[in-house]
Design a protein around this nucleic acid. Structure first.
Lengths: 232, 232
DNA sequence: TAATTGTTAGATAGATCACTCTAGTAATCA
DNA sequence: TGATTACTAGAGTGATCTATCTAACAATTA
């Protein structure tokens, strides 16, 4: 309504939105959405499901989020941020390999329902070019973190200098991805044993290889002698 | 219509279904469904999409398949059979490691759209207990193939006898899974370099370790000395 | 040829989806 | 207190999904 005295819009009784309560409510909805998406997938869970899980009406939902896609994107952003934080903590540890193994044991080898969304995210990225860019950027960040660490460890003689840091980082990332599938493929997985073997593999892979390939004891082995992968 | 003379159903002019043409038509529909599911996922692709892709009507589709789920299941069965065949061929090769790497290079590290369905399958298995059993059984078969090979290679001194065959098989399977995500996470992936590093990792991991851990040259290394994972 | 059945099309039913609209209620401030 | 606006509910809309139904056409055999 026009206020003729001021010549502009009447601005009395402006009610401000409480940002704390607003964010809290958004958080509740996000939590409900996470449970629904974990249970049924991004496409399988409907806005009706999310409303039921959050105990609200559709109108209420759309008061806080403009669309279902916006909810998904918020959730993805949170997930990627959490993952980046995880790797940051791993790389800040005293023994990085042990920290990585502890993380794999905790979040990948044990069946964590919310981890399913990573599989959904990868599948979605393979289809949606826009979303692929987000994943690629995120992966590039994590890869950079790993390769920086590897370079440093190489200069300290703790990692084989013959390994390319970027390529090695890719493999470590793939290892985390692959570990995520293990408890799905085998729910009776012996986690401790898996971690132990992963440790063996990583230590043998990454350790400086002054001796390897020039063993002073002849090997009873069919495959060709071990070769280092040389940096260009 | 009842035939009163014979006392049973009239059975004149019985037209037999041609099993060859029938199977061929089913194959065409399956092919169209594969393209649609690859493009949009099991939930994202509709029966209408499949009909359009196959150039048929809905009535026609449901003449050959009782439901959309039946199409999905057929496709999954074919995919699992193909995967089992792949591993069979790998394990029959002269140099198994090289055959595995060639397979990873060909079907996982290169971006193959149809491979996306493996991710969908894993995600689905994590949600649908019935489908999970299919995946678990299939994985168990592949794991058995690997562990049998590993045991044989151990007895021939070509693989470290300190490794548990089942646990090692799990890791190899996870490696294939993880490799599938690499080209999605990084489309500019240097495939040759990735294969080379995977080769290095596998050779160092699997090779008999008579020398490892008892290096005659002191190591400038922070982590604990290498330990073999002992079989119980 | 006539009867029978396989093959195919296409309209459409019934359910569900993401989302909107209207409206009632509660909180805030002049 | 009264005006204004945030918060919330719930019916409802158009689109779309899986699946069905009717019926035309084609192939096969008595």
């Amino acid at each position: 309504m026009l206020n003729e005295a001021s010549g502009g819009w009447e601005t009395r009784a402006l009610r401000k939105v409480d940002p704390v309560k607003h964010e809290q409510k958004r958080g509740e909805i996000i939590g409900a959405a996470l449970r629904c998406f974990t249970r049924d997938g991004f496409r399988g869970a409907s806005t009706t499901d999310i409303c039921a899980e959050a105990g609200i009406s559709p109108g209420h939902l759309y008061h806080y989020f403009p669309s279902k896609l916006a909810i998904v994107e918020t959730l993805i952003d949170m997930g990627l941020a959490r993952t980046a934080l995880r790797f940051e903590k791993i790389l800040a540890a005293t023994d990085v390999i042990e920290a990585l193994l502890a993380d794999i044991e905790e979040t990948s080898l044990r069946f964590r329902p919310a981890q399913i969304l990573n599989l959904d995210g990868l599948a979605e990225a393979a289809r949606n070019p826009e979303f692929a860019k987000v994943i690629e950027r995120h992966t590039a960040t994590v890869r950079r973190m790993w390769s920086d660490f590897l370079r440093q460890a190489q200069s300290q003689g703790r990692v084989d200098p013959g390994l390319d840091p970027e390529a090695t980082a890719n493999i470590l990332i793939a290892l985390v991805d692959g570990s995520r599938a293990m408890p799905i493929r085998n729910p009776k997985l012996d986690i401790k044993q898996s971690v132990a073997h992963l440790r063996t593999m990583l230590e043998r892979f990454l350790s400086p290889t002054a001796v390897q390939g020039t063993a002073n004891k002849p090997r009873n082995q069919a495959s060709r002698p071990l070769k280092l992968v040389r940096k260009r």
